[in-house]
Nucleic acid binder design. Structure first.
Length: 423
RNA sequence: GGAGAAUUCGCCUAGUGGCCUAUGGCGCCAGCUUGGAAAGUUGGUUGGGUGCAAGCCCUCAUGGGUUCGAAUCCCAUAUUCUCCGCCA
């Protein structure tokens, strides 16, 4: 939710953001209007309510003779208060409807436009050139007997898989390495719930345009989360957190569930786009003025992980139109995937400024003891999808895969995954 | 799944329709006291909305209702606890 003070003081700034995103800017005027109406109705209700409170007080001290007249006057007032309250409530509902539709105000200077209008910030590493015909991760997964897609489909349907043997261990190793890195940088490990209440799902902004991406369990009125960001953002919901000693940082590990409803024909091969995967997500609660620096810190940690996995990647500054509704800026890093001869997203880090925290009512006390809305940021430190890039990048002519040195300590020193030789 | 109990300002707690502008204690903050501290003592200490402001409104788990008037009465929901049942 955007800051209603900004709506009053500088609606033009919000309109500029809406334009950069390619969103409707007339909704800003609508919100300004709704806000003014609501405040007017609220004042009308409150002054009537004050009158009623005063009148009710008189009844208590009145004599027997005076009472009937006072009570009758009170009855009339009560009717008027009730009517005024209904109007004020309706105005508030309308205001919320409108204001919730406005997406976060983007940070000035980010690229305008849609998905293809990103800016490349940097490219790191060289795109692998093989002196043999490289295999894709599906072929490698079969050859090494570490990804079993066929049986995943048999058990659960399309876009499901089993990680097996070294595949399973590789994922856990990667997660552990990421968790070590995060812990060294002041992130507290959390294993989060993956089923959440509607308020939390709505508060994180996922029930908007992503609603059909989300698994919902009607019998229990719970949502399966597509990222631990949801639980991490909900963690301090309705709290006044203490940021006087610095930001609160969490590294949340969870399984993630996505319906992939709108992507029927895309990435049908392999484990690039699946209904269920695991992810280690960083999440920071911080004072708004420090949010942009924190964003760079998250990005630096993501890069450290990519480098530890010896991957070639680029970092992009996502264009306004491709941002989630809560994000004011988003950096993605994309690893080079040899079989596809293209970059694929491995991490995504968003600065949500105060937008998400305002919805979730997460505040802190500033130096003067006043409560202020906190800023939130999130970023990916590792996901199952990384296996695609790791396997394809480090494959060798015989189909074996070299394990990046940094991961070996988490795999009992194993250096290479060899093709399985069946008896 | 069944039965019962509970939910008050960080924590504990008083409170059974108007004097609740919510009691008291702990904790915390500030002052006094002190050589300094402890003890003592005085004051402060939920959060939010609206208004230029004075102020006003809301907040006793949440949402409704009854009433001139609700922490208090009624209904629904949530959460916690106890017992029984079930349990990969």
């Amino acid at each position: 939710m955007i800051d209603s003070n900004l709506l009053r003081d500088n609606p033009e700034a919000i309109k500029a953001s809406q334009r950069a995103r390619g969103n409707d800017e007339s909704i800003v005027d609508e919100a300004v209007q709704a806000d003014a109406t609501w405040r007017k109705c609220l004042q009308a209700y409150e002054s009537l309510r004050a009158e009623q409170n005063a009148a009710a007080k008189l009844v208590g001290g009145a004599s027997k003779e005076e009472r009937p007249a006072l009570i009758q006057a009170g009855q009339v007032l009560a009717e008027r208060v009730k009517a005024a309250l209904e109007i004020a409530n309706a105005a508030e509902v309308h205001l919320n409807e409108v204001i919730w539709k406005i997406e976060n105000v983007v940070i000035e200077g980010i690229p305008a436009g849609g998905e293809e209008n990103f800016t490349v910030i940097k490219e790191v590493g060289t795109k692998q050139i093989f002196d043999f015909e490289p295999r894709d991760h599906v072929a490698l997964g079969e050859l090494l007997d570490i990804i079993d897609i066929e049986r995943g489909v048999k058990v659960s349907g399309s876009r499901f898989y089993f990680l097996k043997g070294w595949g399973a261990r590789l994922e856990l190793a990667m997660m552990n390495m990421a968790l070590d890195l995060a812990s060294k940088h002041d992130f507290t490990a959390l294993i989060t719930p993956t089923l959440v209440r509607p308020e939390v799902m709505a508060g994180t902004g996922f029930l908007g345009e992503h609603a059909d991406e989300i698994y919902y369990l009607p019998a229990d009125d719970l949502y399966l989360t597509g990222t631990s960001e949801v639980a991490l953002a909900g963690y301090h919901r309705d709290e006044i957190i203490d940021l006087s000693e610095g930001p609160l940082r969490y590294a949340g590990w969870s399984t993630c569930y996505r319906r992939e409803a709108g992507s029927a024909g895309r990435d049908t091969r392999g484990i690039l786009r699946v209904h269920q995967f695991n992810k280690l997500e960083m999440f920071s609660y911080i004072k708004p003025e420090d949010a942009e620096n924190e964003h760079l810190k998250l990005l630096a940690l993501e890069e450290a992980m990519l480098q530890a996995c010896e991957l070639s990647y680029r970092v992009i500054d996502t264009a306004a139109g491709d941002l989630g509704s809560s994000a004011a800026r988003k950096y993605d890093s994309e690893a080079w995937v040899p079989s596809q001869q293209t970059y694929r997203e491995l991490t995504s880090s968003s600065n949500c400024t105060t937008y998400q925290a305002r919805r979730l009512n997460v505040r802190y006390r500033d130096e003067n003891g006043k409560t202020q809305t906190a800023a939130t940021l999130n970023g990916t430190l590792a996901t199952t999808r990384w296996l695609v890039a790791i396997l394809e990048t480090h494959q060798q002519a015989d189909g074996s895969v070299r394990i990046p040195a940094a991961l070996r300590p988490y795999l009992g020193g194993q250096e290479v995954i060899e093709p399985k030789v069946r008896a």
